[in-house]
């Protein structure tokens, strides 16, 4: 029996060595490049857990494979296996060791989690989610943006709010995610460490446009961030303002290039003949666009779902609606 156990242990060790080597060399391939300070603790723990998985997997599979290969019934022999009912020492061993491992994991994670959530930060960005777009506000600078631009090296508190359903804030390279819950303000701290372009992706099913609820994320040097802030004063030209607002509020559902999204495309929208779900028709003009923004359900274009949220004066002023109209007029086919 001892001989069997020795051989099985060798099999376990070979397996564990191979899998451990795979985790050791391959971990960077398993996960996207890391780009936040908070994520370092996550990657450390994940890497440790992958080693742990490799070890336990090898133990169980090594013993099971050995048993399957060696402890088979040969020929037609009818005898039974060894009459062993159990072994209290073994039972206590494989109860206590896993217990210690999970308690250790819990303790380390508790420490890391409170470290990640410690309430000190250098700047605030307010994130508002709505079906199916993201808006970023910088209260320190009075800026609103559809693109998330942040500097490296600053610990940012993202204050998360939703105007309709639950969304979730996630940039895979930053690792952490947190839900946006209507009625609550949730938060997450991130210190970007890598410059570059990333994507924010909604990670909680939020309806028909969930898959494409993304926003561009640009991490820049602190100097470049200051320059960006200076550029962000609202444009005076209505067409430029309109373009900005459309990319902020509309473009995730209405394409500008004629491609098919959740809502009708804006390409060549002015003067287009449209048929509504109730069978009536109209030509798109300023009043129709104004109504479609304020009360989208009043007339729904045939072939589309009545899912657009209304934008009241508290979210888009009359001037901003006029600017959107001015921009849409430029989108001729």
């Amino acid at each position: 029996m001892k001989r069997h156990l020795m051989r099985a242990v060798i099999l376990v060790l070979i397996l564990a060595g191979g899998l451990g080597y795979l985790v050791y060399t391959g971990f960077e391939v398993f996960v996207p490049p890391l780009a936040s300070q908070e994520g370092t603790r996550i990657d450390q723990l994940l890497r440790f857990q992958f080693f742990l998985i490799a070890a336990i997997f090898s133990l169980v599979v090594g013993l099971a494979v050995y048993a399957v290969l060696v402890f088979r019934r040969r020929g037609d022999e009818e005898e039974a296996g060894e009459y062993i009912h159990g072994n209290p020492t073994l039972e206590i061993t494989w109860t206590v060791i896993p217990l210690l491992i999970v308690l250790g994991l819990s303790a380390v994670t508790t420490r890391d989690f409170f470290w990640m959530r410690r309430p000190d930060y250098d700047m605030v960005v307010k994130v508002t989610g709505q079906q199916f777009a993201w808006i970023f506000e910088y209260p320190d600078y009075g800026i609103k943006s559809a693109e998330l631009v942040v500097p490296t090296g600053k610990r940012i508190k993202f204050e998360l709010q939703s105007v309709d359903v639950i969304h979730s804030f996630w940039v895979p390279e930053w690792r952490v995610k947190e839900d946006l819950v209507p009625g609550l303000t949730t938060y997450v701290y991130i210190t970007p460490t890598q410059e570059g372009e990333f994507k924010l992706r909604c990670a909680e099913l939020c309806g028909v446009g969930h898959a494409t609820m993304r926003a561009p994320v640009r991490v820049v040097s602190p100097e470049a961030f200051e320059a960006w802030v200076a550029e962000q004063m609202p444009p005076a030209d209505p067409v430029a303002l309109g373009e900005k607002l459309v990319s902020q509020y509309c473009a995730s559902c209405h394409s500008l290039d004629g491609s098919q999204r959740v809502g009708p495309t804006f390409l060549g929208i002015f003067g287009r003949e449209v048929t509504f779900t109730d069978g009536t028709t109209a030509t798109v003009d300023e009043d129709y666009i104004r109504e479609s923004i304020r009360e989208p359900q009043a007339k729904v274009v045939e072939g589309f779902q009545p899912i657009m949220p209304p934008f009241g004066p508290d979210r888009l002023s009359d001037e901003e609606v006029d600017a959107i109209i001015a921009f849409l007029k430029t989108l001729e086919k």
Partner: peptide, 25 residues
Amino acid sequence: LLVAVPTGIKFFNWLATLWGGKLTF
């Protein structure tokens, strides 16, 4: 994470049941 403990107990007992058996498949 405590759930891992009784789940582990089951696994190890299954392995020990296989050990020294006359297995057929």
